[in-house]
Design a protein around this nucleic acid. Structure first.
Length: 467
DNA sequence: TCTGGGGTCCTAGGACCC
DNA sequence: TCTGGGGTCCTAGGACCC
């Protein structure tokens, strides 16, 4: 297999705003300028998101517990963060980046890759890209009321990120094509994306500390050590072989809400009430984004910090609060919480990228409260008949099938609409059922006896692109 | 007064299907 | 007829990133 080759010229730019959250606070509150500022969780179990450079002098770092930060730097300002302000500053910067090139990949509020090759630029000499980077930095300062960013430009994402890190804060670094390997060889293995504490420890045990050490291992050895995907990626990255593209639009794969409590919780009813609250927040976000998902996950962190997840997958996607909360509550029953719960979370994944009807519709009347009881009285027809042979994928066209009265065939990830047509009502839907309710699935919904006049039952299966 | 919250990706085992 | 192998889906956990 051909190794992933970096680009021939430094066309990938990485920007990283310096101590972003803390810098926004210092910008907006002059009294904090020049002083240690720590943004993060301020409660008993909080951790540091960002420390200003003044606070870093005292050894305060991101991801450190706030308790430890307070002991290292008691006189710092501890703030819980104003995310609207951060988002606003971030938007201003991202918009500058999009002026630079249409191909921008935000990694977070304060970080992004830009593919300069997708812009109108043609001069990718060191002087040429340095000028682009300097103009960008000036623009950032102006657009954000004085924030600084560090910029790296190189032939790959990996090297651009290494470069932006190199002379923070307010840095600018270009890695000329061909000099990548000599730059990273003396560095610690942890500069490689994907090498965190666990991998670093495994490598340390076999005597690997630097990128150069890593080069001495064969691909097979690496795969044996850290697994297939990780090993292969490490083998190439330590040689600065990286051709990952800048990807502008990434579709969300999951949405979740979680909370850590200052003291462990035991009361079951309280836990259930919290689950309801999180289900509400999650589904509100789903609905806002016009998403729905099939897999509901409950996350529980116990008093001993052990973390457990329980999940369940529905036949069709949902964005309904009641469904998510009912299922998440049921999952809670599978976890022994008697020792106390430190964190609780609810998530939805397996997202479908199409609009979810949020109500069970009968005769055009929205009848949310009737969703369950009537359904359970109906003689359910097995929808799972569709099974594996009639699966479809997102974006595929509408599928359409007709069967005899009372017959319905099944659902996959789409939705099934069932129409009963009668002689008196020339063509058109008499009833439309949206078979997207997990309470009904995988069985549904069709009661021929309820429609004695029906001459025909027509079903349509909607793939995502139809809706 | 140890260890956030929001994500992504990977692995491994079992079920199930052909 | 005592025995296969590949593919997909699901679940749980873990590593990692910002």
């Amino acid at each position: 297999m051909r190794p992933p080759r970096p680009r021939a010229e430094p066309t990938i730019l990485h920007v990283d705003l310096d101590a972003f959250f803390a810098a926004v606070e210092q910008r907006d509150k002059p009294s904090l300028r020049g002083k240690p500022v720590v943004v993060g969780g301020v409660g008993g179990r909080g951790v540091v998101s960002t420390a200003s450079y003044e606070a870093r002098l005292y050894g305060v770092r991101s991801a450190m517990s706030t308790a430890e930060a307070r002991s290292r730097c008691p006189h710092a300002a501890y703030l819980s963060g104003r995310f609207d302000a951060y988002r606003q500053a971030s938007r201003a910067v991202m918009s500058l980046l999009r002026d630079l090139s249409p191909l921008v990949e935000p990694l977070s509020l304060d970080e992004a890759f830009v593919d300069l090759a997708a812009s109108g630029h043609t001069d990718f000499s060191v002087a040429g890209v340095t000028e682009i980077a300097q103009t960008l930095k000036d623009g950032v300062r102006e657009a954000t009321g004085g924030l600084t960013g560090s910029v790296g430009v190189a032939t790959s994402k990996f090297m651009a990120k290494v470069a932006s890190e190199l002379d923070k804060p307010d840095g600018l670094c270009v890695v000329p094509a061909g000099t990548e390997q000599e730059l990273i060889r003396p560095m610690k293995v942890s500069v490689i994306p994907g090498v965190g504490p666990a991998t670093a420890e495994r490598l340390r045990r076999v005597g690997v500390h630097t990128v150069a050490d890593l080069e001495a291992l064969s691909q097979d050895e690496l795969v044996r050590l850290v697994g297939q995907a990780h090993g292969t990626s490490l083998y190439h990255l330590c040689r600065a072989q990286d051709d990952r593209p800048v990807v502008a639009e990434r579709e969300a794969k999951s949405v979740s809400v979680e909370d850590t409590y200052d003291t462990d919780l035991v009361d079951r009813r309280l836990l259930e009430a919290l689950i309801d609250r999180y289900a509400t927040r999650v589904t509100e976000r789903l609905q806002k984004a016009r998403l729905s998902g099939r897999t509901i996950t409950l996350k529980v962190r116990l008093h001993d910090f052990s973390t457990h997840t329980r999940s369940t997958t529905l036949p069709s996607p949902t964005d309904r609060t009641r469904t998510v909360s009912r299922l998440a509550r049921a999952l809670l029953a599978e976890v022994d919480t008697s020792g106390g719960v430190r964190l609780l979370g609810v998530g939805v994944s397996g997202l479908a990228d199409w609009i979810q009807e949020d109500l069970f519709e009968i005769d055009g009347t929205l009848a949310e409260d009737e969703e369950r009881e009537p359904a359970e009285e109906l003689p359910a027809v097995d929808l799972s008949r569709l099974g594996r042979d009639r699966r479809w994928s997102p974006g595929q066209d509408v599928q359409h099938e007709e069967h005899g009265p009372g017959w319905v065939w099944g659902s996959g990830r789409g939705r099934v609409t069932v129409r009963f047509e009668t002689a008196q009502t020339p063509p058109g839907p008499v009833r439309t059922f949206l078979v997207d309710d997990p309470a009904l699935s995988p069985r549904a919904v069709v009661d021929p006896a309820a429609e004695p006049e029906a001459t025909r039952v027509q079903t349509e299966v909607w793939g995502p692109s139809e809706v």
